[in-house]
């Protein structure tokens, strides 16, 4: 399909299209809760390479990322709670990386992983690129709330690692990658949230109780109207985010956090109230409602929770002169 190639420059075998196109793809993947390794490889690994990779690293991976032959992923969390440079136990020395990363998406199918490790200099962290086929890398799969996506812990023991970006500049680089991923994830969340509204609406129109379509009860109408309102605000914020990403605007951190928080809230609401609208049917394995409910939670924490992004949002308003 070439989707993974969307924003990769033509010189590296990509399509060289804009983030607006990628946002549309993200939205559609979200709409069908697609069980594919896209966010990990495209929003995180590809973006990290584009932002921080040197020419050689880009040449090594971008062309195969573009064709979809290679899958990349990104690993920073080492346990429950928020990560910070201080929380990182993973360390590299002399080009060898050791440590453990948890719940890494697609770790078992990725060809490479970009890892945040502690650094004694700069901002306290550095990013490294590690080939998953290295003898020092092993994975342990873990079951999650969303079994349609694969996750695993990764153990590194003296795995060969190439620095990505500067030594001691990893934490800053990670934040920039997360801002970019947040915009794209917001679009994916929005697509899912829209799908929930659509499903709920269709079901409510056809389901009768007390001699009337349940869609004619205000309790249901207001529920769906609330979904619509949340989705509409989230969409507008997501457009703003996509614009900021595409133009590399100074207000990207604020725009990204705004889009991320809005879409996270909208998707949680829509996915749970979609089940509620379906009554008992919504609570069955056979109906699709559950995929969205599970996915909404996965996407709500995979690049940091609502609370974390709320904090980033307020911090961005304090720093930017645009707010």
């Amino acid at each position: 399909m070439g989707w993974t190639a969307t924003v990769i420059p033509e010189e590296f075998g990509g399509l060289g299209l804009s983030y607006l196109e990628l946002a549309v793809i993200a939205e559609e993947l979200g709409r069908c809760a697609a069980p594919v390794p896209f966010g990990s490889s495209v929003y995180l690994a590809t973006e990290a390479l584009l932002l921080g990779g040197n020419q050689e690293q880009k040449e090594a991976w971008l062309p195969t990322l573009a064709t979809g032959e290679a899958i990349g992923t990104f690993a920073y969390a080492e346990g429950g709670g928020q990560s910070s440079p201080k929380s990182l136990a993973t360390k590299a020395s002399g080009g060898k990386l050791s440590g453990r990363k948890v719940v890494v998406p697609d770790a078992e199918i990725a060809q490479f992983v970009i890892v945040a490790a502690a650094s004694d200099s700069g901002d306290g962290a550095s990013l490294y690129l590690v080939d998953m086929s290295d003898a020092g890398v092993s994975t342990e799969s873990v079951q999650t709330l969303d079994p349609s996506r694969s996750h695993a812990h990764i153990d590194f023991s003296s795995a060969s690692a190439q620095l990505l970006g500067g030594e001691g500049q990893g934490w800053g680089l990670l934040q920039r990658v997360l801002d970019r991923a947040a915009v794209l994830t917001a679009w994916e969340q929005l697509g899912g949230s829209e799908a929930c509204l659509e499903m709920a609406k269709n079901y409510a129109m056809g389901r009768y109780a007390f001699g009337r379509a349940i869609a004619s009860y205000q309790a249901i109408k207001h529920k769906l109207a609330d979904m619509y309102v949340k989705n509409t605000l989230a969409r507008s914020n997501a457009y703003y985010g996509a614009w900021a990403l595409n133009t590399d605007a100074a207000e990207l951190p604020l725009a990204a956090a705004t889009a991320r928080v809005g879409s996270t809230q909208a998707y949680y609401f829509s996915s749970k109230e979609n089940i509620q609208t379906h009554g008992g049917m919504g609570y069955t394995w056979e109906f699709d409602c559950q995929f969205y409910y599970r996915r909404s939670k996965l996407l709500a924490v995979n690049i940091g929770s609502e609370g974390l992004w709320q904090e980033r949002l307020i911090a961005a308003t304090e720093q930017s002169n645009v707010a």
Partner: peptide, 9 residues
């Protein structure tokens, strides 16, 4: 959410 990435386990 408090568990962040690990919460999905």
């Amino acid at each position: 959410d408090l568990l962040e990435q690990e919460g999905i386990v």
